[in-house]
Design a protein around this nucleic acid. Sequence first.
DNA 1: GCGAAAGCATAGCGATGCTATGTATTGTGT
DNA 2: ACACAATACATAGCATCGCTATGCTTTCGC
Lengths: 208, 208
Amino acid sequence: MRAQLLDRAAHMLRTRQPVTLRTLVAGTGVSTMAVYTYFGGMDGLWQALRQEGFTRLAAKLAAVAMTRDPVRDLAALGAAYLSNALESPDLYRVMFDADVELEDAAAADETLHCLVDAVERARTAGRFRDDVDPLELATQSWAIGHGLASLVATGPLPHQALGHAVPMLTALFIAAGDEPGICRRSVESGWGSAAIFLNRKGHEKGGG
Amino acid sequence: MRAQLLDRAAHMLRTRQPVTLRTLVAGTGVSTMAVYTYFGGMDGLWQALRQEGFTRLAAKLAAVAMTRDPVRDLAALGAAYLSNALESPDLYRVMFDADVELEDAAAADETLHCLVDAVERARTAGRFRDDVDPLELATQSWAIGHGLASLVATGPLPHQALGHAVPMLTALFIAAGDEPGICRRSVESGWGSAAIFLNRKGHEKGGG
DNA sequence: GCGAAAGCATAGCGATGCTATGTATTGTGT
DNA sequence: ACACAATACATAGCATCGCTATGCTTTCGC
C-alpha cells in the first residue's frame, strides 16, 4: 500500500496532476488516513518521494556498465544522471526543491559514491593526478550535472543545453590531469552510451 | 505600496516566515485585495518576486567593477552571483523553484548578458580561442554557478562547497584557451574580490 | 458638484492539510 | 475458540489557504 501510494504520487507528478492529500487517495479506494499511517502526513510523503527519487537515481547510476576507461565511465554516469533527471523532471525537482531537508545528505552521499569510485579508479589508472581529491572532483562533476539538470528542468534552458555537459566535463577532467585528446574521446564515448534520451528534443512529453 | 509588499515578502522569505496572502498583508494595515490589485493574485506576487530577484542579481552583477583582465572579471561575476545567491537563498530559490515560468528566459538572458560580454572581451583580448562561442561559455559558467548555488541553497552541500567554483571556472577557462598559470591567477583574483561572504561559514544566519 | 472609475475593506466560497473519534481487522494468550 | 489489546482505516469536522463577490471610499474629468 505504501508503495502503491508512492507510485501513484510519482505518476501524478509525471502527468503534472496536482498531488494533494485528497486527489492522491481518490481512486485507490483508500482514505486520507492511510497517508498518515504510512507517511505521517504530506511532509512525510514528500520526504518519501525524495528518498524514492534518490533510490531510483542510484539504481540508474548503478546500472551503468563500468568499463576499462574510468573517464568514460564518469561521463556515462553524468549522462545517466541527466537522463534520469529528464525522464522525470518533476520527481527530480522534488528531490531538491522541497523545504524538508532530512537525511538527504546521506542519500546524496550514497548516490555520489559511484562517482567517487570512478574518480578513484581514474586516479589509480594514471588518468588523473595523484593530488586530485576524489570526493572533490566527484562533487564538482555533480555540480555540473545538477546545474544543467536544474536549469533545464525548471525552464530557462532548452533541452539541448544538456549537451554542454560534454565540454564542461571534458574541461574538468583535463584540469584533473587527463590527456586532452584521450579525455575528449572518453567523455564523448561515455556520453554517447546514454545520450539517446538527451539529444532528442522531447522524446515523450505527455506521459501516456 | 507595490514595493512595500514586495519588500515585506522578501523580508518574510529571508526570515523564514511563511509567505501567505493573509500573513503578508497583516501588519501593513492593508487588506488582501491589495495583492490582487497590484499582482493579480499570489502567483503574480511570486512572479514579481522572481523578477525582483533577477533585477537585484543583475544589479549586483552590474556593480562588479570591470578591469583590464576579462577572465578575472568573469570570476568576479561568478563570485558576485554566488554571493548574491547566499545573501538571500530563499529568494534565489524562488527565482528557479516556482512552477510559474513566464518571461524568465528574458530575465535570465538579460542577467547573462554581462557574462557574455566578458567572454567576448576575453576572446578579443586573445585569452580565449576564436572558436569559442561567447553565449555557450557564458551559459556553461552560469551552469556551474547555479549548480553550486542550488546545491548549497537547498541543503545537501555546506557553505564552503562554493569554493569549488574556483577550480571549476579555471578548468573551463583553460579549456577555452587561456594559459593555465595566468588563468589561475585571474580567477583567484576575481574570486577574491567578492569572496569575503563566501569563505565565512554563516556570516549572518538569522536575519536581523 | 456630479457621475464614473479605480482602490481598497469585508465576508464568504471551495479546497487544502490535519486531527478527533469511531469502526474493522489483526494478533495473542489461555 | 473466545476475549482482549493494538493496529489500520473510514468519517466528520477544524483552521487555514487562495480567491471572488460585493459595498464603501477616494479620485479624476468636466
